[in-house]
Design a protein around this nucleic acid. Structure first.
Lengths: 409, 409
DNA sequence: TTGTCTCCCCAGGGGAGACAA
DNA sequence: TTGTCTCCCCTGGGGAGACAA
């Protein structure tokens, strides 16, 4: 009955207004910050390569169910589909704030594929904001007693400066989350020794977002002087529920049948890419694919580097050696470049690294100059339609070979 | 740091133990009570009719997205598939407690269909427990001040009797929910005038189950002297989130492709039936289908009755008139019996009643005696394989015509 | 009979510095 | 510099009867 007269600090924020336009763009900086430093989205209007195999991996990870034998074969569905990327929209799960992207793809028809020339179409670099910080929550941060301890340098860099003539110095922070919901916090500099703390408003945020120790929060102070606030839940095992809408088998079939149908009719189809659930990106820029598959020679025994995200959401290189080049799934997906490289990892933490990677994920240490490789790595395999045309593309590549191709991510 | 020494009343119950066996049967009484009085599940081992069209309706309702034009046609997928029902398991969503059933179906091959005779295979009547009560929560029940007001007759009938020599009479109730999690409540008879209340433990339950005014709780006192506790969330609009795993288009395609593949290979497939999300049951006992389609004559203008669940989760008959008999979706599903009857409803609350129903849902007021109708209603339509064989079945039906066929539900 | 209100009282949580890693 | 602990104080919620629909 109490009329909420004042939107005072510490009040739970009103629920997000119902999205009038579903397509409403959410903040791209924040999305990328939540997605992590290695995630990049291809540019709208460019051509990409879609791997149903990788999509299948994501669905398997999301439904906690590996694909089994009951899936029909789609003989007309190649392991990779070259597509026009018509649309990319960024989203975040309303319940969990988990970021994901929706992409509308249209497989090229053979004619279009032959018309192709190699553009310098790379993805949008996952532009990590400059003025931001990310902290993994401690037990104290999430406990019922007290607020959030802000790392000193982070507070000084990212938060608006405090008026230190006050005793103690304090201010109200207003930050918007990925759904554009406003959260208010009391930011105070106190204690002995002095430290930055978020007090009032913090516990409401923690419980609303269901944060626990080990999860991360990140604050961004952008060019428009907006304070943005994102979360990253720690990758809890078994966090994704199997849907009660459709069996995981039917989901797998749906993904494959939708892609096969789109390929057969050259019509658009829609996929979701879930960066933090999916083991690997399965829609990559065509140019990145071409560079990796046709312009990089690799061989067994070759050393390589590969980027991974660290616990603290920065980037680290891991070293490894190529041990084999073969089909990841010779039965279902013969002659696929998806995870065609079997690798060994230098470090003993290799349990967390994938045993198989794709060519475009790795950076071989011995590189060849950028000229068309007339003898691609795996000539023994028959070429699929999508690949056959790429051959023709290559002769044009040499012309534009001087153009510096920069990796996405 | 406080060691939880006592599992005293009012403590939040421990989280459900990780299900060691996914297939673990949950309480059937409770499942049916939560599902509602009209829901029945076909018996394992019997034959059923599966309607991809109805399944599609459920997926559309669950994803909040109607099927649009991008769905490929599956010319070999008939509007109804006669299947052997190999397995039915009852489940409840871990997050929301929403009940659903998983069924494993295997389409009969033509040979099996011809071998068919009409068994008296009806579904398991949704056995509503005798000793139970269901109450829609009031604002006071869910407010932070005070507990749950138990209707007097309900408390006397369903709860263990109180010792009225005590002042005030009170006891500890232990009830198990659908996940077999224990909840403890203080049951007390006090106030002026006297009434039954659940106090300690109630608010923990309300917040754990995220109950709000308008939702319902139900208590069952079964033959084994167990107290069971179920919830039914009010049908909130837009409650089901669109999944970020697979696009709704791909889900629709998946459902159809999975059924088509199973029909083509006579292999098993798995579906989820979500009684409270799905507009109508889409897996029904074969015998019920045959009786409705072949042994009931209906015509335009005919009056009929149909059962609906009321707000208070009891059953009510609504009256209507048949206005048309036609295909619900002539383009995608021609010659389908799914919602082939267009109806008008007597009451002005007709907005909530469906404009189209299926034959087996209604009870025509003018019934004909039970003999084979040699001229089924819609002879103009070509018969699908699944139906053609039913013709042959009919001659055998007449032999067993004396067997009383009782409706499921 | 039962839904809502108000009142009372206390447990638990927010907010502070102490202290140590 | 910052994570954890403890202490203090106060709010918000549980638990009671009053009262009315």
């Amino acid at each position: 009955m109490s009329s909420s007269s004042a939107a005072s600090i510490g009040q739970p924020p009103p629920p997000a207004p119902p999205p009038e336009e579903e397509k409403k763009c959410l903040n791209s900086e924040l999305w990328h910050a939540c997605a992590g430093p290695l995630v990049c989205l291809p540019t709208v209007g460019t051509r990409v390569v879609y791997f149903p195999q990788g999509h299948s991996e994501q669905v398997a990870a999301s439904t906690n169910k590996e694909v089994d034998g009951h899936i029909p074969n789609y003989p007309n569905l190649p392991p990779q589909l070259i597509c026009q990327l018509h649309d990319v929209t960024m989203h975040a799960d309303v319940e969990t704030d988990e970021v994901y992207a929706q992409m509308t793809l249209q497989p090229l028809n053979p004619q279009e594929q032959n018309d192709a020339y190699l553009p310098a179409e790379m993805g949008i670099m996952s532009k990590q904001p400059t003025n931001y910080f990310c902290k993994t929550l401690t037990a104290s941060d999430t406990s019922t007693h007290g607020g959030f301890s802000v790392p000193r340098r982070a507070a000084e860099r990212v938060f608006p400066p405090l008026d230190f003539t006050q005793q103690p110095p304090a201010q109200e922070l207003i930050a918007r989350d990925i759904h554009d919901v406003e959260w208010k916090f009391r930011h105070i500099f106190r204690g002995q020794p002095k430290r930055h703390l978020l007090t009032t408003g913090w516990s409401v945020f923690v419980s609303a977002k269901r944060l626990v120790a080990g999860d991360s929060v990140l604050f961004i102070w952008n060019e428009k002087n907006q304070l943005l606030l994102g979360i990253r839940h720690a990758t809890r095992p078994q966090t994704v529920m199997p849907s009660s809408v459709l069996s995981s088998d039917s989901m797998h079939i749906g993904l494959l049948a939708a892609a096969a149908h789109a390929a057969a009719t050259n019509s658009r189809f829609t996929i979701f890419y879930n960066p933090r659930a999916s083991p690997t990106e399965f829609v990559i820029p065509l140019s990145k694919y071409i560079k990796a598959v046709f312009h990089t020679r690799i061989s067994v025994g070759m050393r390589f580097r590969m980027l991974f995200e660290t616990e603290e959401s920065s980037v680290r290189r891991y070293m490894g050696t190529i041990t084999e080049v073969s089909d990841a799934d010779p039965v279902r997906w013969p002659s696929s470049y998806w995870r065609s490289v079997k690798v060994g990892w230098d470090e003993s933490t290799a349990g967390e690294r994938p045993p198989r990677v794709s060519l475009w994920e790795i950076e071989p240490l011995t590189t060849f100059p950028m000229y068309p490789s007339l003898f691609p790595l795996r000539v023994k395999h028959p070429w699929y339609s999508g690949l056959a045309c790429l051959y023709h593309v290559e002769s044009k590549i040499s012309v534009v070979g001087a153009i510096s191709l920069h990796y996405c991510c």
